[in-house]
Structures are given as structure tokens and as C-alpha cells.
Simulated scan of single mutants.
Amino acid sequence: MIDGLELAMTQLKAAGCRTIYIDGSFVTSKPNPGDFDACWEPEDMDYDYLRKNAPRLLNYLDRSAQKSTYKGELFRSDQPVGDYGLASLEFFQRDRQFNSKGIIAIDLLRWES
């Protein structure tokens, strides 16, 4: 999972992404998480770069393809989630009972692979 997350972060950073947010069992005390959930800031992104070099980052509808490449699911932070009326960044900051919770933010401008 770390390798897949690092690949996604490398590709997002190359496209101009500034921040990625990580959620799911990956950021809990669960000993063997099955995957990670993440969303990324879309501002100032080079979408042509992503379409050419990392098209699966743009295709949130094909979750199995994302999981096969990155070992997790990735969404734009402003992408609506289901029928909840929340964007993914807001949704990730809620638990299953919709109480507030923390997530991990990684500043890709300072991150080095």
C-alpha cells in the first residue's frame, strides 16, 4: 500500500497538486488495513499531464482499477460522495455516525519521494 500511495503522490505532485488527504483504516490503529482512501486538491492541476500519465487518478468511477494501481481509492477533494451532499474532503472528516474526526494532510510541495 505504501508503494501505491507513493506512486499516487508522485504523480499528483508532478501534475501540480499541493495537498493530499488520507483517510480510512490506513490511518487508524488497525493492524492490517485493506486499503487507503484519499482525496487531493484540484487547484492549479495540469489535467493534461494526468490524462496522459495517470488517467486512473481521474477515473474515480473505476475503483477496482484505482485499487489495482494504487492499492487505494483517490478522489478530487471537491468530488461529491454518494447522496450525502458532501464533497470527499468533508465526507472523509466524518465517521460512520457522521461525527467529526481527523484525517492526515500531506503537503506535497514539501514532500520528497
Rank of each mutant, 00 (worst) to 15 (best):
K101R: 15
A65W: 01
I106G: 01
D44E: 14
D44I: 07
M1W: 04
G102T: 12
K101Q: 14
F98L: 11
L12E: 01
Q11F: 01
D35W: 00
I104R: 03
Q93G: 09
Y84G: 06
Y49W: 08
K71V: 01
I104M: 14
D44Y: 10
G4P: 08
K67W: 04
D3H: 11
F36M: 04
N99H: 14
R18W: 02
A65Y: 02
G16D: 07
S29L: 09
W40F: 14
K101P: 10
K13R: 15
F98Y: 08
M9V: 03
I20L: 06
T28E: 08
S113A: 12
A105T: 05
P33W: 03
D23N: 13
I2D: 15
L109W: 09
R76T: 04
M1G: 08
I2Y: 04
D35C: 04
S64Q: 15
A38P: 04
R51L: 12
G16S: 08
L74A: 03
L109H: 09
G24E: 06
R63V: 10
E41I: 08
A8L: 02
K67A: 06
K67V: 11
N99S: 12
C39V: 05
T69N: 08
P55S: 10
Y84F: 15
A87E: 10
Y60R: 12
R56I: 06
P80D: 07
F98G: 02
T19V: 13
D62S: 13
E73R: 05
I22N: 04
K13P: 00
C17D: 03
E43D: 15
T69E: 15
A14W: 01
Y84L: 11
S29E: 12
T69I: 12
R18D: 11
T10I: 13
A87L: 10
R96E: 13
A15N: 08
R63Q: 13
M9S: 02
G72W: 01
I20D: 00
L7A: 05
E43F: 07
G16I: 04
